[in-house]
């Protein structure tokens, strides 16, 4: 299949900071790519470059076969963008927002209106269609924002952290919408911090950190890299946590992490519940009080730990700009 999105050797610098240090991506037409990474990894910078909002410093960036710099106008006609913050006009009603965006996509008046009605229906906003968006909940705004990006039936859709900040129910609803779109043949690039989300929606995933791709593959392939399940246990007061780790070491299928503060141990294991039973047997009679123990599937944090040796929490990248982008700018800044 022809790729709908091609990124080769994309480099983007903001002043002295290198936000993207050579990113390669290829997304086949009609498929969904999950772009994973912690805050500040460069996800948003990739999306913004693809959506023609930023110009690449180096590399080739093409959407539906068109160069994002040279053919920017045509690229814009083929894409839909939903940023991290719902970019809807608060004073316009839901219907007015959609019609405005439809008109700006060059739909005729009548078509803009009928598409708006269709999308309000589909995104469950009919009841709120004639209320100003100011009165919408976070989830409703997000749905309206996505509806706006779909109004001209884009071939390629960019969703930047579509579920961040949503409550669990809205998140599930959003997942259904995205899955429906994907079934309808729209090529989607979505960024997320959650492996579970990418796992559920994406055909393939790319993990980036500090502006570089550190892993790619399907969800199963990534999890295989992390190595099966993880055994986690928290111990009460008593012997040193390190001592407990030493007792369990023979069970570990990889490096064990120990948090002295919370007295928690986490290690990859193979063998599932057998490993769990064995671990408890090994601690019997050692005087160790086990407060909590369990097996869990690996998540993005584990992928990170395995790939970078750091958790997502500490994966602060030099691209502090992306972090700053999460807050409304309160100080004067250079034009980006």
């Amino acid at each position: 299949m022809t790729p709908a999105i091609v990124v080769e050797g994309l480099v983007k610098r903001f002043g002295a900071t290198t936000a993207l240090a050579g990113v390669d991506l290829s997304v086949p037409e009609g498929s969904v790519l999950g772009l994973l990474g912690p805050n500040g990894a460069g996800k948003t910078t990739v999306v913004r470059t693809l959506a023609t909002l930023l110009q690449p410093d180096e590399g080739r960036v093409e959407v539906v076969g068109l160069d994002v710099v040279r053919d920017a106008a045509q690229v814009r006609a083929a894409i839909g963008l939903t940023g991290q913050y719902a970019a809807v006009d608060e004073y316009l009603t839901g219907a007015e927002n959609l019609e405005m965006v439809g008109r700006l996509y060059r739909l005729g008046r009548r078509e803009a209106r009928s598409r708006a009605a269709e999308l309000l229906e589909r995104f469950d906003l009919v009841g709120a269609a004639s209320r100003p968006a100011k009165t919408y909940s976070g989830g409703m705004r997000r749905r309206l924002d996505i509806a706006a990006s779909l109004i001209a039936r884009p071939r390629v859709l960019f969703l930047d952290e579509p579920t961040t900040g949503l409550d669990p129910r809205s998140r599930l609803g959003m997942w259904e919408f995205i899955a429906d779109l994907a079934d309808g043949g729209t090529t989607i690039l979505l960024t997320t911090q959650y492996l579970e989300e990418a796992d559920r929606l994406a055909d393939s995933m790319v993990v980036i950190d500090r502006g570089r791709v550190i892993a790619r593959g399907t969800g199963d392939e990534l999890k295989a890299q992390v190595g099966g399940q993880r055994l986690e246990l928290t111990v009460g007061r008593g012997p040193d946590v390190a001592l407990v780790r030493d007792r369990l070491r023979p069970l570990a299928a990889g490096e064990a992490q120990v948090d002295e503060q919370t007295r928690r141990i986490s290690m990859p294991v193979s063998g599932g519940t057998d490993a769990l039973a064995e671990a408890l047997r090994r601690l019997e009679g050692s005087g160790v009080e086990v407060l909590d123990v369990g097996l869990r599937r690996p998540d993005l944090d584990d992928v990170f730990l395995t790939l970078t040796g750091r958790g997502t929490e500490e994966a602060e990248s030099p691209d502090a700009a992306e972090q700053a982008g999460r807050e409304p700018a309160t100080t004067a800044g250079g034009a980006r």
């Binding site: 023609t52 106008a73 940023g83 913050y85 719902a86 970019a87 809807v88 608060e90 700006l104």
Partner: peptide, 18 residues
């Protein structure tokens, strides 16, 4: 600009001056 609306407009195939 602060509310992200300019980003939305800039991603649309509309006139740069509009």
């Amino acid at each position: 600009l602060q509310k992200g609306l300019i980003d939305r407009f800039r991603s649309l195939p509309m006139s740069r001056a509009a």
